[in-house]
Structure formats: C-alpha cells, structure tokens
Design a protein around this nucleic acid. Structure first.
Length: 803
DNA sequence: CATTAAAACATG
DNA sequence: ATGTTTTAATGG
C-alpha cells in the first residue's frame, strides 16, 4: 500500500502538519511529492500538497486521495526543501510557504452546492421551485434566499446533498483549431459528393487544402473564407473536418518587437568586476557578490554577460527587480539580449498571464526569468545565477506571511545549486554593505560612470530661508528659475514629490483639529477625486467636512501637497509647460504607466511630475533637471531606517539627471538642509553616509549590529493587549541570553487599527539559537487564546516596517 | 426539559 | 479554517 503525506490547504496552527492519505491503486506510481491533490478533510474536500510517499502510516484511520490536480509535480524537491527553510525562518505555516511559491492562479477555489436527491411533498415550496429552475443551488444562493436552514434539514433527511467542489482558479487558455479529417484523395471524393449548394463548405475545404499547416485557428479560417461557424459545424458533422482545442499562452509582450542586442565590450572596471563572478560560475561555487556601482556605471551589462555565461553552461538565471512594470526599460534590455528565452513576472500582469509565464518556466521553455520578489521561486531545476538589482529596495521583503526577504531566499537557493548571487546597487543596504566589509559577501565596485560622465550638480535649498524671503509657493526661487530655463531650452525636467510619511490630510487652522479615523489611531487621507477622507488601514470613509467638527471654523486647510496640487500650481505659474503627472491616480489603468512614459520619452511633455514610481529606471537623454520638492517628508517617520531611505531615494532620483551628453542638475528642497542624509545625498557620497549611519546604528543597537524580531499583539481591549504583551515579553526575556535587548511592551506606532489595540515587543539580538523556538512556543500558546479571547499575536523576524 | 448559544474538539 | 460534538445558558 502506498501512502502520501499531505499538507492541507488550511492555514492554521492546528492543521499545520502532515496528514496521511492512502493512494488509490490507479494512481500508484503517478502521485509524486510536490503534486497538488484533492483530499477529504473532515466533512469537506480540500486541496493539499503531497510532501512524501511512504509504505505505511501510523495514523489510526486512513482516507484515500480523491484525485491528483497535477500530472507533474508543481514543486520540485529543492523547492519543497526551501519551503521547510521558509517555514522555519519566518515562522509561517507550511501551506503559506507552498502557496507563496506558486502563482496565485493555482490557489484552490472552493464552492459548496446543494443537489436534490428526491423531491418530497413536505419540501419548502420556494426550495422546490428553485431546484426546478437550477440543477444545483450554490451556498451563496441559498444564503441570499434564506433557505439555508430548510436545505440543512433536507440534507439531514437525505433528500438533498451538500457537495464540496475544489477547482483551480487558473484556467489554461485554448483556441479552436480546424483541420481536414481525410487524406487528399478521399477528400476529393467527398467534395464531389457535396451538393452544389454547399459553396461555402467547398471554399473552406479548398482553403484548408491549400494551407501549409494541418491545423489552422478556426477564427482565421472563418475570416479568410468569409464563412460562419455554422459552415464549420456542418463540415465537422459530416466528418470532413476535425476540431481540436490547442492550449496557447497569453503573451503580455505579444505585439512587441525587441531589437536584438549583442554583448557590449566591457570597460576595464567592468572587466575587473565581472571576473570573480565568471570564476564562481566556472567553479560551480556559491558566493554572494555585492556589485556596488553608481547609477550609469554599467551594472546591467555585467548582469547580461554573467547570464550569457550561465546559459552557455546550459543553466538558468533569475533576475529580480524591485517592481518591473515600473521599469519597462529593464525588460527591454533582457528581452533584447535573450529574446524568447525570457519570461517576465510582475504585478502588472493578470493572474492568467502570470500563470502562463510560470508554466513556460516549468516546462523549461525559457532560461531566464525577470521578475519581482516572488520570481525568486521560479521553478528552475538547474539554476546558474540569481541577480538582485537595487538590492536595497524594501519591496524585497514580503509584508505578509510568509514574511520572507528575497535576498536571503535567493542565497538559500544558490547554496543548493552552488551558484553565485549578485546583489546590485548604487546605494546598498547597510546590512549588505556591512557584510561585504566583513567579507561575508565579496565586494565588487564600479566607482565610475560609463564614459566618465560627470555626476549631476546638486543644489540643496533651505525652504525655511525661502519662507523668510516671503516665498510661500512650493517652488523655491532656484528651482523655478532653472525650470523656466529648461523650458526655454526645450530640455526636460523631472519633479519628484515624496508623499510617503505624511500623505495629504486636512487640518483646522483655528483649533488644529486633524480628521482621524474613528477605528484606528491614524489621520485620514484626503482623496481628491472622490472628495472623501479615507483610512488606509481599515477602509473607513467619510466626506470632507465643510466646517471643523470641533470649533465650527470654516478655515480648513489641506496639508501634504499632492501631485495634483503641484500640477495645478504649475499650470498657473508656467501655463506653457506640458506636464505629465504620474501617480496612483493616473497609472491605475493597465498599461497607462508605460503610455505616460512613452509620451514623455517622445518629447511630448516638458515636465514629468510624480511620486516614488518615477524614482527608478528612467533613462531619457533629454532630462537635465531633477527637482525634489520636499526631501525630508520621509525623515520624520519613526523608523530607524528613515535616514537610509531618504539617502537612497535622493541619490536615486538625482541619478535621473544628465545620463547622456547633457550635463544634469538637481535641486533638493528641504526644511532640514543640515541633516547628514540630505547633505551626503547631495554630494552622492555613499561611503561617508555609510560611515555616519553606522555610528547611529551602533548607538541605537540596530541592524546591522543587531538582528531584530518584532512581536505585535492586538486585542479589542487595550488592557488585554498590554497585559498579554507584558507576559510575552517576560516569557521571551527569561529564555534568551543577557546579550539580547528586549524593548517593550510598548504601544505600536499605530496604536489602534480597526478598533484593535496594538502593543509590541522588539527583540534586538546578535546570536540567539533558541529564539525561533521561543517565538514558536509563544505563538503556539497564544493561538489558543486567539480563539477564545480574541488575542492576535504576529511575529516578524527581521521586520522592515515597525508599525 | 427543550431550545439555543457558546465553547471545545477534530480534521488522516 | 470549518464543520461537528459537547457543554453551558436561557427560559418556560
């Protein structure tokens, strides 16, 4: 007898273990570890993942697998092992780890339907008529009609049954193909046998006869011959045509031409940097490289040529980029070099498109994957390199379970395949740079820009000074002057608005009242298009008050300049300027992002105005001025990384200027011009920033000197939350060494979300082998309370967001 | 003692 | 997570 160990699709602590199932004889030898199966679980049917096969089970009773959902495993043995590691290090459920590795389209969909077994006179009339009209009544239908109770009775009486359905969300797309059913000579006979009236049918047959391929898309045949589906159907009926459904991929880049490029000759510094990488590929040796190079120093060409070598070895490559839909230029470079060998995975694709790209990888139809965070799980089996571009980006950390970091995950996979990892950045994360300093990673530097282009000149403007001079607009005199100058010269400008930190809120000028969410301790955000105040945490919404609810004053001010407002002001000050605005509002529609960029690239606009999303990957030759409207909004968020983030962002934005022949200029407007992150970003001096920031981190006992783990506890009752956090803090403290620093319990920076009070405990540590075990037992112990007392405990190992 | 709601339990 | 069983609470 064959038995399969299965992880079931129920994300809960109690079910986070293997359940054994008998493999029916007909599937023996077919069902493999890594496959999805449908299994009975209690009274229902659910999806599960086979993790192992055995000959016997210690379980008292065994049920049988209902059916496999895959013909081949969707998770290879290496990925199954990686899931174990993910579960262990991020303290998530095994099922969550599996699901994170697969495209969302493969998540199971569950449906409950009632079916009539035998009608009885005693039945509810409404119910009978519903069953008369429908074969099945879905659970939702029954709920809406208020028939659930009645149906439950009928099920009990065995006159109806409740059926649990499991389906995969993802649908393979297929198209109808048409071909001739008979060989030529037989066909001739049949054609003669056709009545003279069947002109159209004859047309179709001769069209197909003339075609080179045996099967043609039905749509094409109908268009070309001017016939309708009826004609085809008739021919199929007569046995003259065959119809087949052929699976096709949804190709998001279908109508795009990518000009093929050849490897460029490397500069000396690129040569020096790439040599160790090629060496590591050659020796099949795992090593992590930190490729530290300023913007425009030619990192991408190093990526491309390293991959080239990997492909020559018959291996595969993964390239991670922060958010690829935002950097179409990156896709172009990879598609341009490796053509159809490239699959692309990013959030701009539909679920179906992602599923198709994933299947291309699984079927080994591509060799290179370019994608966002989750692409680190691309199901390759002969990996030769993993590249993480802009490795400092925080989007590489997933903020829901499993809370993994793509960088650590990539390194774990690379260890298995004994292949190199390249971390590329102009402003490496402090963690990575410190590791490079210690020799954990090998540091590769590209200190100079290609063709020794000068870095842009940066001017830091003190906005307090502007105010003192009576300038109350959002443009400093310096920026405005330069802006006008560029307009005259016909050169382009990028205006960057950093809205993270405090987004637009409203405040009463008389009493200082700020509209806050009634369920969360956070101010509401103003949304212009709907003229509503919204809470970004719980979704609460209310119209903007016309008078202050506190003091009835009518002096209500909108704070936190939005892009829209900047656009309006630009329109007033420089009516002749053509402005392209890019933010969440203007790029929400699919493809609009690229369209706007295209517009700007073609010179149809003078000014590109936007938020975060324009900081990355723009490379247009005509941009000679970059303006940062308020550099310090991010500095004030309570996060030990705020200086680092500010520095990274400013450096990155500045890098947009003057990447080609024309010299670039940058204007940074700030209220805190003396802050080292702003000063040093102005000088583009990463090394000095690293030194100064390391001192701060050391003083605060923060990474990279200490690791962090954050425990967040929430409860509807403030006291319950705080006292539970206190107990947890003590419990943890008692089990760790004296080296560990434990902060808490303290209220979270956002003390209440959705009417739940939040407390936290922050653990700073260097080496605590027992920590994961301790945290696990905390969660275990408190899941019990979760059910009865409404307590929620969440653990984030190596958190990025401390709120 | 019946009815209903809440808590405990099991899921192979 | 979710459906079932057990236990407790409510009310006559």
């Amino acid at each position: 007898m064959q038995v399969a160990s299965v992880i079931v699709d129920v994300a809960a602590r109690q079910t986070d273990k293997e359940f054994d199932y008998k493999i029916p004889e007909k599937w023996e030898g077919l069902i493999q570890p890594g496959m999805r199966v449908i299994v009975p679980f209690g009274p229902r049917k659910i999806q599960g993942f086979v993790t192992a096969l055995k000959n016997a089970s210690s379980a008292k009773k065994l049920k049988s697998i209902i059916e496999p959902m895959d013909l081949l495993p969707v998770l290879n043995p290496e990925l199954l092992k990686l899931a174990d590691w993910l579960t262990e290090t991020t303290l998530c459920f095994k099922i969550s780890a599996y699901q994170a590795m697969l495209p969302a389209a493969m998540k199971a969909k569950y449906e409950k339907v009632f079916r009539l077994r035998e009608a009885a006179a005693s039945m509810n009339e409404e119910l009978l008529s519903l069953f008369h009209r429908h074969d099945e009544i879905t659970w939702e239908m029954a709920e809406k009609e208020g028939l659930l109770a009645a149906l439950r009775q009928e099920v009990k009486a065995n006159r109806a049954e409740l059926i649990y359905k499991v389906t995969s969300k993802g649908k393979k797309k297929s198209i109808r193909m048409i071909g001739l059913a008979l060989s030529d000579d037989k066909l001739a006979d049949s054609m003669n046998a056709l009545s003279a009236n069947a002109r159209k049918q004859k047309d179709v047959l001769s069209y197909l006869q003339a075609a080179e391929l045996p099967l043609l898309p039905a749509k094409e045949v109908m268009e070309q011959t001017g016939t309708s589906n009826g004609t085809l159907k008739a021919l199929i009926e007569k046995g003259l045509l065959v119809e087949r459904y052929q699976e096709v991929y949804r190709d998001p880049y279908e109508n795009r031409q990518f000009e093929q490029t050849e490897p460029l000759p490397l500069t000396d510094q690129q040569q020096t940097a790439i040599a160790p990488i090629l060496g590591s590929i050659e020796d099949v040796r795992h090593e992590t490289f930190l490729l530290y190079g300023v913007t425009g120093s030619g990192k991408t060409e190093i990526y491309l040529q390293s991959i080239q070598r990997v492909l020559e070895k018959g291996k595969e490559a993964i390239v991670l980029v922060p958010e690829i839909s935002l950097t179409p230029q990156m896709v172009h470079r990879f598609k341009g070099r490796f053509g159809d060998d490239v699959a692309v995975l990013h959030s701009g694709l539909s679920a179906g498109e992602k599923y198709d790209e994933w299947r291309k990888i699984q079927r080994k139809e591509v060799k290179v994957v370019v994608g966002a965070r989750s692409a680190v799980f691309a199901p390759f089996e002969n990996l030769g390199i993993i590249i993480i571009d802009e490795e400092h980006e925080t989007s590489y950390k997933q903020e829901e379970n499993p809370r993994y970091h793509a960088r650590e995950t990539a390194i774990e996979r690379a260890k298995f395949y004994q292949c190199p990892v390249i971390l590329g950045s102009a402003t490496p994360s402090l963690e990575s740079f410190a590791r490079a300093q210690k020799g954990v990673y090998q540091l590769l530097s590209l200190p100079n820009r290609m063709n020794n282009q000068r870095l842009p000149d940066v001017e830091i403007v003190d906005m307090r000074e502007e105010l003192r001079h009576g300038n109350r607009s959002m443009f400093s005199r310096a920026l405005f002057e330069k802006l006008t100058d560029r307009l005259e010269k016909g050169e382009q400008t990028v205006l960057f608005l950093n809205r993270r930190g405090h987004s637009s809120f409203i405040m009463c000028r008389d009493c200082g009242y700020v509209a806050g969410c009634p369920h969360c301790d956070i101010s509401l955000t103003y949304h212009r298009y709907s003229h509503q105040m919204k809470c970004h945490y719980c979704g609460f919404e209310e119209p903007v008050p016309s008078t202050c609810p506190e003091c009835q004053s009518e002096h209500i001010r909108y704070f936190g300049t939005g892009t829209q407002k900047v656009e309006d002001e630009l329109g007033k000050l420089l009516p002749q300027a053509r402005v392209v605005r890019m933010d969440v509002d203007t790029t929400s529609r699919k493809g609009s992002h690229e369209k706007l960029l295209q517009q700007f690239a073609e010179g149809k606009a003078d000014i590109l105005l936007g938020t975060q999303m324009i900081a990355k990957g723009l490379d247009f030759p005509n941009i000679t001025l970059v303006g940062v409207l308020s550099a310090d909004t991010m500095l004030h968020i309570p996060d030990f990384r705020s200086a680092e983030k500010t520095f990274q962002l400013l450096t990155q934005v500045s890098g947009r200027a003057g990447r080609h022949q024309l010299q670039g200029e940058v204007v940074i407007q700030t209220y805190t011009p003396d802050h080292y992150s702003i000063q040093l970003a102005g000088k583009q001096d990463y090394d000095q920033f690293y030194k100064e920031e390391m001192v701060m981190r050391k003083l605060g006992s923060y990474p990279p000197f200490y690791y962090l783990a954050l425990v967040t506890v929430s409860h509807e009752d403030l006291l319950a939350a705080s006292s539970a956090t206190e107990k947890i803090t003590h419990y943890i403290q008692a089990r760790l060494s004296n080296e560990a620093i434990i902060l808490g319990p303290v209220a979270s920076p956002i003390a209440r979300i959705n009417n739940r009070y939040r407390y936290q405990c922050l653990i700073k540590y260097k080496r605590e082998p027992k920590l994961n075990h301790v945290l696990k037992s905390v969660m275990e112990h408190y899941t019990k309370q979760h059910n009865d007392k409404g307590l929620q405990v969440a653990v984030d190992v190596n958190p990025f967001i401390m709120m």
